[in-house]
Structures are given as structure tokens and as C-alpha cells.
Design a protein around this nucleic acid. Sequence first.
DNA 1: CATTAGAATAACACC
DNA 2: TATTCTAATG
Length: 814
Amino acid sequence: MSSFNEDDAFEAAAAPRVPLSQRAMAARSTPYMDGLNPAQRAAVEALDGPVLMLAGAGTGKTRALTARIAHLLVSGRARTNEILAVTFTNKAAREMKERVGRLMGETVEGMPWMGTFHAISVRILRRHAELVGLKSNFTILDTDDQLRLMKQVISAANVDEKRWPARQLAGLIDAWKNRALTPAKVPVSEASAFNNLGTELYAAYQQRLLDLNAADFGDLLLHVLVIFQKHQDVLAQYQHWFRFILVDEYQDTNVAQYLWLRLLAQTHHNICCVGDDDQSIYGWRGAEVGNILRFEKDFPGAKVVRLEQNYRSTAHILGAASGVIAGNEGRLGKTLWTDEEDGEKVRLIGHWDGEEEARWIGEEVEALQRGGRTSPPKSLDDIAILVRASHQMRAFEDRFLTIGLPYRVIGGPRFYERLEIRDAMAYFRLAVSPEDDLAFERVVNTPKRGLGDKAQQKIQTTARDHGLNLLEGARVLLAEGGISGKGAGQLRAFVEGVDRWHQEVMGPLVRVHSDLDDEVVDDEGGVRVASFRHAGPTKSHVELAETMLDESGYTAMWQADKSPEAPGRLENLKELVKALENFDNLQGFLEHVALIMDNASGETEEKVSIMTLHGAKGLEFPAVFLPGWEEGLFPSQRSMDESGKKGLEEERRLAYVGITRAEELCSISFAANRRVYGQWQSQLPSRFIDELPEEHVDVLTPPGLYGGGFGAAAAPSESTIESRAARADVYNSPGWKRMQASGGARAAMPAARGPVIEGTAFGLGDRVFHQKFGYGAVAGIDGDKLDVAFDKAGHKKIVARFVVGADEASDIPF
DNA sequence: CATTAGAATAACACC
DNA sequence: TATTCTAATG
């Protein structure tokens, strides 16, 4: 899968046309059209000119897209390598490849230009890297490297990193890149950003990247765009080549991607964009809903096709989703409808706190798994829990671990983002490109080699003074004797190790991508010519990886580590090495990791999925749980603070996406209390709950109260009984009753009356109550903070709004 | 230079 | 709460 040894996708020979006989057959029968509804059929058949496919959730857009590709191929309008098909996730690309393959039978070789914007951009950029000052073997930085580099740039400019954090600069630059702004193009009006140094630091950062022969994610697109804009001949080549362009999730494209597409479509105008403005949930990463709203203007003569028949969800689920999304303004407007039965109403339930919510969902999942009077047993694979923010996953993991419910976390802390994996990868990177300074920095002193700040500083200075990379700088430093005793020996060993690994890596690889060398990097031959000489029988890259981790002492470091997570880390390293087997060489692997960052492991055991709402886009499940519908959490406070109404509408679309993932059963829940940064906080039910149409919602009575409903099947655990009294009272609160009565009014949970106290309405000696610490007396007051002497928990500093007067607390039973 | 304790601070989502 | 940063100590 490495881009180095792939057949050149431009070679016509690489892509045979579908045999004539089959085409003739296809003219008579077109099986890929079977079962398409009129709208889908229209989208498949409109091959000439721009097409906008407005496809609501669950309306079979992938079906239509794949059929369209099949149609292009079978009709002979295009070869596989003349179709540019862009998706947002690798998963989507993979799925589409599979489905096209299935439609076409054995005849289709992989479609070389089907992939994410980033993956496709990398391919293009490797071919023309020198046009933007890179070499074709440039490395792709991950967020970690990016940040480290950013810090260097900031401190090099003598800016206080405390006051101007690298994260912020990274965000700023990222946003500029999303808008296709190179440093020179950043509007003057934004020059004041980041202490008036924004553009300057941006430029400096870009220069550093070029020096390192590296690109960050944003660059992948931006560089290609710059190349297209500056080099008409290169652009023309691609414009000519891509006869048909398909874009999935068009509502998620940012400005840079939009420009990228528009340039490429200029010759043939055969661009087909699929999207749904109601599912635009990536505004924070620069996506412009405007792109889809403007499509007809951008591409004159565009044909617009609407897919409105939903094949996924029951009428109740659809109704609930429609009700929520109706609160947004400025929609293109679609009316989803379905032939499906009403099904079960969307279930709504409130809980005392996040843990109880997790407990309830755990029980519900088990109940579904067992099946009930009305429903057959469900596979755990058919059940998903979709959260707003990844930290919410934790409660579920904890709960599921204790009850032994198998689950999988999708998009959580990713495998390749783990510390030990990044370290190991840094070793691999060094072996592949010894000039990779960021990798060098990462591992010179990992494991500890007695090379601390001071020693590293020396290496840096030496390198800079001689205009060398860090490895060479270290070599010079050693030669000059600029480093003392113990560190020196270790550093020497390290440098020699890298040299050795590099030689071993480069040996067999040269032949693999020699064609590219000839073509693109001929004047950088020094290294490569030498590597020809070293070519010879060496270990496989898998063995080599093991050797590296061994010789560097990295494995030993974790073996010696007696912390509880060490064994897991070793396990991960093993897994990493195993993953290498799927690749031809280290380079291919490194690129895969940089771009693919998703961990699709081939596990087969049935598991409940836990993922974020964002991660769930494009997926569907028979049963979906949507926990944490609370003000501030969902809709997220930050979204609303940062983007106001726009932010809120995006949150609402997220709610819409969540509900529409469900096929048969959708359960929305919220908790009255939640721990935020370890502090208990009372929560208000989300405003989106108010927006659920009454007729599609079933407000559940808490399990245990009447012993009815879904909870009936679940054996009450001890902890359930324990909190039952509390629950009874929670659900008898005025607010809850109001919600039950009206089916939609904002439910005010008892604790929600909590954030009551403005300032501190407490005096010294007052008896107070805190949810976690219990009863106590106020012993001191400091602004909005109280020093409380708790009866059981001792002295604590507590923000006043987290406690209530002891008398008020008496109606909150514990 | 490494280790450690205590303080500060953090948490939205992704290629 | 849990991680990460800093300063102090060995």
C-alpha cells in the first residue's frame, strides 16, 4: 500500500477497460441499477456535467454513488484510474471500494484515485514536491511533532510561551490553512493575531517545515493547491486525466478542498457532489456549509437530485430527528419520508448521575442482548453508544468492564497516538530518514541516556552552527569532544546505532522505489547512491524493527519499568511489530500510519460500540443510545461560546446525526449530576430534549419505580437498590413531573435548582451539604470559595455553588 | 541529570 | 479526576 511502489496510476496500461463483451451485456442488463428508486437512478444516470446529490440520512447515497461508478465503468465512459473519488474517512473509501468491487465482480482493479483528500493529496504532492521546495520523501508530521515544532518557533521569536501557547498558534495556522491562506495571503485584518506575530510565526513555521523536509496535515492540501495555482501545466495534466470526479460528504469540505476540487473540475465539469447540509458537523475544522448551499452557482448548469426516501429508520425515529433539526434556519430543506412502520418511540430517560446512566444503559444492553417479549435478541454489534465528547466514554468503559460486557471503543485514544508507539515510530523514522530532527529529539534520551536539557542544547547549537541536522550535529559534537564523559559514550552509541539501522533499512529498499528516485530526486542522489552500494541481503523490515527496539534499549526500558501500564505497553509494541508485516517496507508503513490513524483490527467477537457522534457519521445501528444530553455538554458550551448561534446549529445537526444513526431503537438520556474535572456539577437537560416532538417520544419511568418497562427484565443489582430511594425522589420532582406531563417541557431536576447561589449566600458556621462530601460547616469564605469542615471528609475548599444549605438538602435523600 | 512531589490545568470532534 | 508542568531535592 505504500505510495512508493504503486504502479503509476497514470499509466493507461494499469487500468484495462471493462471488456467489450461485458459492456455489451451491460447495455442490455444493468444489474447495478436494480432496486434503485427514481431519484437514485437519476443521480446514477446523469453523467454529463455537474450534479449535486442532496442525500438525507439513510437515503442510500452510498448505494447511488457506487452504482454511478459502476455505470461509468460499464458504460465505458471512464476507466478506473480516470475517476477521482474523494471521501472524508478512510473507512468510507474502503467501503466504497468494496462495494464497487462487489457490483462489478472481479473485473475491477482497485481504483487508484479513490481516497481521502489527504491521501490523494499526498500522492500528488510526492510527484511534484520539488515545486514547493520539498523532496518527494518528505515526512508527514503528526500533531505531536507539529506542536513541538511550533514551540521551537515561538521561543525562537522570543515570545513567552506561557502567554502565547503553541496550541493556540497551531489552531490559528490550521484555520488559515483550511482557508487556503499561505502566510503571504493572510489578510492584514488578521495580522494582529497572536500578539501581532501570527503571520510572522506562520511563515517561520513553514520555513522550518521545509528545512525539515516535512509537511503537516494542512500542508498536504495547501501545497497541492499552490502547485495547481502556480503551475498551469501540472494542473492541466490532472484536469485532463480526471474525467469524472465524485465527492462524498460535500457539506464537510473546507475552502481549500473546495478550491482544490473546483480547479480539477474545470476541464470536464463532470463533478458529482453528494452531501446533506443537515449533517454538516465539521465547521470547527473549517468546513463550510456554504459550499453545498452555493453549488449551483459555482457549477452552472448543475443538476440537483434529492434523495428523500429513508430506508434506515422507523417513522418515530425519523420524526424525532426531523423535529429537532427543524429548529435550524437556512437549511436547503428536505423532507425525509419512509415506508417503514412507526416502530418504537424514541425513549427518553433522566438519571441521577452519570454513573447511574451508565448502569442503566448497561442493563438495557444486556436486556436487548437477551431479547424480550416483543423483540428478538440483538447482537452486541448492533448496539452503539454515541457520546458527544470522548471523555464521556470512560463511564461506560468502567461500567462495562465491571459487568463484563464486551465493548469496543472507536476513535478513542488511538493506537498510534500512544506514547510507546510514537517512540517506536520515531526510531523507525530515524532509521528511514536520519535527518528527521523531530524524531531525533524525541528519542535521543528515551530510554534515558544521560542526555538531558544541557546535552541536547549543545547538540542543537552545534547543528545550527554547522547548518546540519541533529544527528550530524551530534556527530560533530562528539568529534570536537564538546561533550563530557558518560553522556558522550551513550551518545556515540546512539549515533552509531542510527547509522547502522539506516544502512540496513536503505539496503533493500532502493530497488523498490528506484523509479521514483530517477524521476524526482536525482539531484539529491548523494544519500541514495551510497545506499545502492549498501544494498544487499539484510533482514526483513519486521526483524529490523525488532532489532531497533532491542538495540536501542527501548524494549528493555519498559521491561524494567514496574508501573502497572508497562506490560500493556510492551503488548502494544508487539502489536506494532506485527502490524508491520502487512507492509512491504518501513516507509510504506510510516505513511500509512500518518494518514490512516484508524485502528481497524480484524476482531470478530461481538461487542457494543462506544464512539463519538462525529465518529458515528455514516454508520447505522439497530439500537442506539445517546447519553449525556445536558446543557453545556450537549450542546457543548464551548461550541456555543465560540461560535454562538452557528455553533448551536451545528450542535443541533449533531443531535440529528445521532438520532438518525438508529434503525429501530433510539434511547436518549441525561443525568442531573455529573463530575466535571473531578468536581460534581448539577446539569440541566439539553434544550434539544425540549425539541423532540412529543408524539415521537416515550418518557420512561425509571426502572424500579413501577418495576415495569424495560427495566423489568434486568435483575436489580445491589447498587440499583441502593439508589432507588434517591431515584424515586428525583423523579417525583416538580420538573420531572412537568416533563412527563407535557412530554417535552424542560425538565428541572431537583439538583438543577442547585446552581442557585450567586456569590456565596453563606456565613461562617452555616451548615451546608455537598453531594460528595456530605454535611459540614462553613469555616471560611474566600470569594466564591468556601472552606468547609465536613463531618466526614474533613476540610475542603469548595466552590460555593456546589453546596446547598443543610436544610435545603434534607429533601435530597441519600 | 534523574526523580519526585506538588501545583496547575484540562476536556469537543478528525485527516 | 488524571495528566502534565515546575521546582526542589538527591
